[in-house]
Measured scan of single mutants.
Amino acid sequence: TTVHVNGVTYHFPNPEEAKKFVDRVVKEAGLTVEVKGNQWDVE
């Protein structure tokens, strides 16, 4: 699973890890998340 955060790419072994990361980032920074298949874009 690939997560893009403001142009930076993070790779995770599974969607659960990616979701935990995204949830944390979104809570801390108040960002928006767009999910496209296995790819997350966070802005």
Rank of each mutant, 00 (worst) to 15 (best):
K27H: 08
G30S: 06
V8P: 00
G37W: 14
E17L: 06
V42K: 09
N6T: 02
V3Q: 00
E43I: 15
D23E: 12
V5L: 11
D23S: 04
T9G: 02
E34M: 06
D23T: 04
G37Y: 13
A18E: 01
K36H: 15
T9I: 13
V25F: 13
K19H: 06
E28M: 10
N6V: 02
W40S: 06
E28R: 06
V33R: 03
D41N: 10
D23W: 05
W40P: 08
N14Q: 02
R24Q: 10
G30R: 03
V26F: 14
L31F: 12
A29N: 09
T1K: 03
T2P: 02
E16F: 10
N14R: 01
E43P: 08
T2D: 04
Y10F: 06
T9H: 05
V33Y: 06
Y10L: 03
G7K: 02
R24I: 07
W40G: 08
E17R: 01
N14A: 02
T32M: 09
V22P: 00
H4N: 11
T1S: 05
V25D: 02
R24H: 07
G30M: 07
A29Q: 12
V25I: 14
E17I: 03
G7N: 03
D23F: 05
A29S: 11
T2R: 06
P15S: 11
V25E: 03
V5A: 03
G7Q: 02
T9W: 11
V33S: 10
E17V: 03
D23K: 04
N6A: 06
K36Q: 15
R24A: 09
V26T: 11
V42A: 09
T1H: 06
E43A: 11
V22Q: 03
P13H: 09
N6D: 05
K19V: 04
K27T: 08
F21C: 02
H4Q: 12
E17C: 10
N6F: 13
P15H: 10
T2I: 12
E28T: 07
V22G: 01
V5G: 00
V5K: 01
V42I: 10
G37N: 10
E28Q: 08
V26A: 11
F12E: 00
V42C: 14
V3T: 01
V3R: 01
E43T: 13
L31A: 11
T32W: 04
F12V: 00
E34R: 09
G7V: 01
E43Y: 14
E16S: 06
K27I: 08
P15Y: 14
H4D: 05
E43H: 12
K19P: 00
G30H: 07
H11M: 06
